[in-house]
Structure formats: C-alpha cells, structure tokens
Simulated assay, not measured.
Amino acid sequence: MAKSRVTFNKKEKEKKRLRKKKEKEEKKEARKASSSKGAGMEDMIAYVDADGNISDTPPDPDNYEEIEADDIEISVSKNMASDDEPSERTGKVSFFNSSKGYGFIEDEQTKDRIFVHATGLVDEIEENDRVTFETERTPKGLSAIEVKRIDK
C-alpha cells in the first residue's frame, strides 16, 4: 500500500486557511448588519437651534422668526465704512515709497492703516506728512484717494 502524500503540516495549513476564510466572511456579515449605509433619511438629518447648536430634534415651529432677505448681510468686513461717516478724513503718512508708488496712511480717528497708491495723490507726500483723504472700497480693502497734504 502506498503512503499518502498529504502530511500533517499540510492538513493544518489547510484548516488554518479555511478558518481564516470563515472568520473573514463572518466579519463581513457583521459589518453589513451594523452598517448605517442605506439607513433612513431621518437618521441622517441634523437641525440647528436658535443658539447655533446642532441637535437631532426639529425646532418648534411656534418659535420661528421671520427675517427679511434684505436684512441679511454676507461677508461684511468689520471696518466697513458706513454712510454716516464723514467723506473726508485726516491722517498721517506712516509709510510711503515714492519709487514704488505706494504707502500707508494712519487714520487719526480710527487708527486704521489705509493703503494709498500714487495714482490717488493730488499733492506730493512724504512720511510723517499730515494729509486729508477720501476712501474707496476695493477688492482688497479700503484705499485712499484724493490725498492732499495739509500745510504745517
């Protein structure tokens, strides 16, 4: 009679491989069972209350507050010039580079540094000059225009 070529070690390896395959299938089934994928829409909805906190309960419809669309302001900067401000301001030139043609004016009232370009100058200016100017809103912020030097 001939001896079997399957050794004990080969049998153990085959058993171990089958056991791992079975464990992998069981884990896959467990993941499918506990998965929230495909759960109802109600489980995925989150609500924001009046204080800005996120909750899973819908807000009370009796507490709704009507807001006009015109009252909503989006991306308004803190330093936005309001309509009641005077159009002409005074300030001191804190920096000006005449070769490059730009500088900054420090506003006397708000202490803001406002950009000034040589194209917005009426008179020649230098550092530490007192000036009067108007501002305009640009994509990068406030810019000084109509800059005039005040005689000392």
Results as ranks from 00 to 15, higher is better:
E25K: 00
E25A: 07
E25Q: 06
E26H: 08
E26F: 03
K27T: 01
K28N: 06
K28W: 01
E29H: 04
E29C: 08
E29I: 11
A30N: 06
A30R: 04
R31P: 00
R31N: 08
K32P: 02
K32S: 13
K32Y: 10
A33L: 05
S34F: 02
S34M: 05
S35L: 13
S36N: 15
K37V: 14
G38I: 05
A39L: 02
A39T: 07
A39R: 08
A39E: 08
G40P: 06
G40R: 02
G40F: 11
G40Q: 06
G40V: 07
M41Q: 14
E42C: 09
E42I: 10
D43H: 05
D43G: 07
M44S: 15
M44Q: 11
M44P: 00
I45Y: 03
I45S: 01
A46N: 06
D49R: 01
A50K: 15
A50W: 10
A50H: 14
A50Q: 12
A50T: 12
D51Y: 13
N53A: 05
N53I: 03
I54V: 12
I54Q: 06
S55E: 12
D56R: 15
D56W: 10
T57E: 15
T57C: 12
T57M: 15
P59Q: 12
P59H: 10
P59V: 11
P59D: 13
D60C: 10
P61F: 05
P61T: 10
P61E: 11
D62L: 07
D62T: 12
N63Q: 15
N63L: 13
N63I: 09
Y64G: 05
E65M: 11
E65V: 13
E66L: 11
I67K: 15
I67T: 14
I67F: 15
I67M: 13
E68Q: 13
E68C: 10
A69S: 12
D70Q: 04
D70T: 06
D70G: 02
D70F: 07
D71W: 08
D71I: 09
I72K: 11
E73F: 05
E73I: 04
E73A: 07
E73S: 09
I74H: 13
I74K: 11
I74A: 09
I74L: 12
S75W: 08
S75P: 00
S75C: 12
V76P: 00
V76M: 11
S77P: 07
S77L: 11
K78L: 04
N79F: 08
N79I: 02
N79M: 05
N79G: 14
M80C: 03
A81I: 07
S82T: 06
S82M: 01
D83W: 08
D83L: 08
D83V: 04
D83Q: 07
D84K: 03
D84L: 06
E85W: 02
E85P: 00
S87K: 12
R89K: 14
T90R: 01
T90M: 07
T90G: 07
T90P: 00
T90Y: 02
G91W: 01
G91N: 00
